[in-house]
Design a protein around this nucleic acid. Sequence first.
RNA 1: GGCGGGGUUCCCGAGCGGUCAAAGGGGACGCGCUGUAAACGCGUUGGCUCUGCCUUCGCAGGUUCGAAUCCUGCCCCCGCCA
Length: 403
Amino acid sequence: MREASSEPDEGDVREAGRLSANAVDCLPDGALAVKLAKARREGRPLRVKLGIDPTAPDIHLGHAVVLRKLRAFQDGGHKVVLIVGDYTARVGDPSGRSTLRPMLSGEQIEKNAATFQEQALKILDEDGERLEVRRNSEWLDMEMAQLLELARTTTAAQLLERDDFAKRWEAEQPISMLELMYPLLQGYDSVAVEADVELGGTDQKFNLLLGRDIQRAYGQPEQAIMTLPILAGTDGKQKMSKSLGNQIGIVEEPHEVYGKLMSVPDELIGDYSRLLLDREVDPTLSPRDAKRALAKDVVAWLDSPAASSHGEAYFDRVFVERSAPEHLEEARFSAGDGTVHLPALLAEVFGMSRSEARRTIDQGGVALEDDALRAGEHDVAADRLDGAVIRVGKRRFRRLRAR
RNA sequence: GGCGGGGUUCCCGAGCGGUCAAAGGGGACGCGCUGUAAACGCGUUGGCUCUGCCUUCGCAGGUUCGAAUCCUGCCCCCGCCA
């Protein structure tokens, strides 16, 4: 559907340029400016869609990249439509995956959906004028006839063009019907909420574009799409994701966030800075100092400057000086006959097995008051433990107290 | 419906009657080095009352002095042809 009546003026073009900073793709060319112009003429905000499937319980910095962009739209006066994909989470988006994804239980999805929504508000403006939160079960739990109507909008060839489907097809790997349906469902979300613009990671490009086709099939104006870079996880290699264990959650303890950011490979500092803080790295800083500045400012953004300072102090103390943090959790032990079997105590306190505890001790990984225990030193006098700080590895600490 | 290939310890993947708690890689963990990291080196990676014992190789039986390895049944996954 042409929108020729909405010629963008200079301001629209500038605004579109500003909004598409950091974007990898903003398609079709010029479409965003046209959308802006149209909305301006009609005196309404743009409806900017993001769908997130609550397949894991927490939002991490990878999600934050897109959420920040949404926030930029909000700050520009537009309305974000956040779709919690409680229905699509049951299907499992195959994007970037080479294997099938397990289906989640309704209960688990419900739980995740609640925390997702709550955590997203840490970044988004929750003003009702600027935010609409929807669940896609509202419209996807549809009649068979409606589903078939949706299915008519797209051909198998179209779907198989998608990169990961194409690869799997080529490699004779399974592609389930459920997965094939996924892009259609996501596209239908756009129809249901009448999206003007949809955002997503670059891995979503196909789905976002297909949304346009589906909107057209339903007689709606086609959304503009914007893709943002995928943030690499703390391993520096793979996309940040909970299941790969390389994520930094936005509601983690400030010192955890700080520490995890510091452990990110240097090569990522630039990306992180640009995508999470919208700024380039100060070239006069050494990688170490640049990373410190990054860590500090990200924590300040997510929490507060005070939390950030504490996170930094904690980090310096524990990792730079290698001493125990100021505030330690306590662990109680019973003195028994005056000797304590450490593997049992460590197993209980740190959730490891006794064998693992023994090995760690034997490898010099357990220290009492900064003195590493010697190999075989498994039984220790209770009075030596009472009040002492025990450290396992670099970062696990407890203050011991006799019970 | 027919034919064929598979299910091994966190993951991938060897093993194909004893020498197997099971090669190799990845990941993770510990130590060293260091900038906090990366890279690199060394070590560990089922459990336990630990020079030994117990439990693992889809599930259940069976053969055998002895099975992850052989047999039978069952469950599940994948591909091809139709």
